[in-house]
């Protein structure tokens, strides 16, 4: 009786979350899968069961290149967010001594996350533009004679924006796991004669792996699913899968957009499944 009671109470309390996820997560995915087999005219879509959309996707050279570009953005952004995020978390966890200071500095890193991504993207324009601060500074220092053209509306600015927006998603989980490392382990390493670098490589990094994995999942999925950063920061000159989908939507080609979305979702889920082999998320919270 007691056990059944626990399950029933648990179910009752879980109903609201389940309802929201069923209506706005599961149903939309099902709908997308269904529509991906539909056909479209210039103005409307009609129910069908055809594989045209997928045939086009898997046959197109353009689509293949766009998927490659998406992986490229994900890989490069992952690398930079990891290096920067790890260093920041390491500083906060092991070099800042008082807890008050730790919390204060941690909050400083977190606050931009609670402000608008779009504004944060816009705010790079006066910095990177042809007559922007970066070019003006470099010219006045005599480093370059002419403004650099590749600072804005290029792969560089896209990746810069990704790193700017998403490094936090690395800092938080890595900091979280680092804070649980038993400090006596570090002392033990030092007492046994390990250098700071050896302690880092052989003690801290292995123990921080779960945090790194969670951060990686966040960054990789955010970058792979993005469509707005690439559009805005490249001035519509670069493409990733998300933009492919949003372009189709703009042209009212919903079935084609849905098929691309299904392929994107499968790709992301495969990547996550691989990453999850390394970590048990629920244990890490």
């Amino acid at each position: 009786m007691q056990i059944r009671n626990r399950h029933i109470l648990g179910w009752l309390e879980a109903i609201p979350l389940t309802a929201v996820l069923l209506c706005f997560l599961v149903a939309p995915i099902v709908m997308i899968v269904i529509v991906s087999f539909w056909g479209a005219t210039e103005f409307s879509i009609y129910p069908a069961f055809q594989f045209d959309n997928y045939e086009y996707l898997f046959g197109s050279e353009v689509v293949r290149r766009v998927f490659l570009a998406t992986f490229k953005y994900a890989a490069i952004s992952w690398f930079f967010t990891l290096v920067i995020g790890f260093t920041v978390a390491y500083f906060l966890a092991f070099h800042v001594r008082t807890q008050t200071m730790q919390i204060a500095l941690f909050l400083l890193c977190t606050i931009p996350f609670w402000t608008s991504n779009i504004i944060r993207m816009i705010s790079w324009i006066p910095f990177l533009g042809r007559n922007g601060i970066a070019n003006q500074t470099l010219i006045s220092w005599g480093v370059i004679d002419q403004p650099l053209e590749w600072l804005l509306y290029s792969d560089f600015s896209v990746i810069l924006a990704f790193v700017h927006l998403y490094t936090l998603f690395m800092v938080v989980p890595i900091f979280n796991t680092m804070m649980r490392i038993d400090k006596s382990l570090l002392e033990a390493a030092r007492d046994n004669g390990a250098s700071g670098f050896q302690t880092l490589v052989h003690v801290i990094i292995p123990l921080t792996k779960p945090g790194i994995m969670i951060g990686t999942i966040f960054v990789v999925t955010l970058v792979m699913g993005d469509f707005i950063t690439v559009r805005f920061m490249s001035g519509s000159q670069r493409a990733n899968v998300g933009r492919l989908i949003s372009n189709d939507i703009g042209l009212l080609q919903y079935p084609s957009a849905a098929a691309t979305a299904v392929v994107l979702l499968c790709t992301v889920l495969i990547v996550i499944a691989i990453l999850l082999r390394f970590v048990n998320i629920r244990k890490e919270l």
Partner: peptide
């Protein structure tokens, strides 16, 4: 982790 555009679409 689902790409946001899927929810939107």
């Amino acid at each position: 982790v689902i790409p946001s555009i899927l929810i939107s679409l």
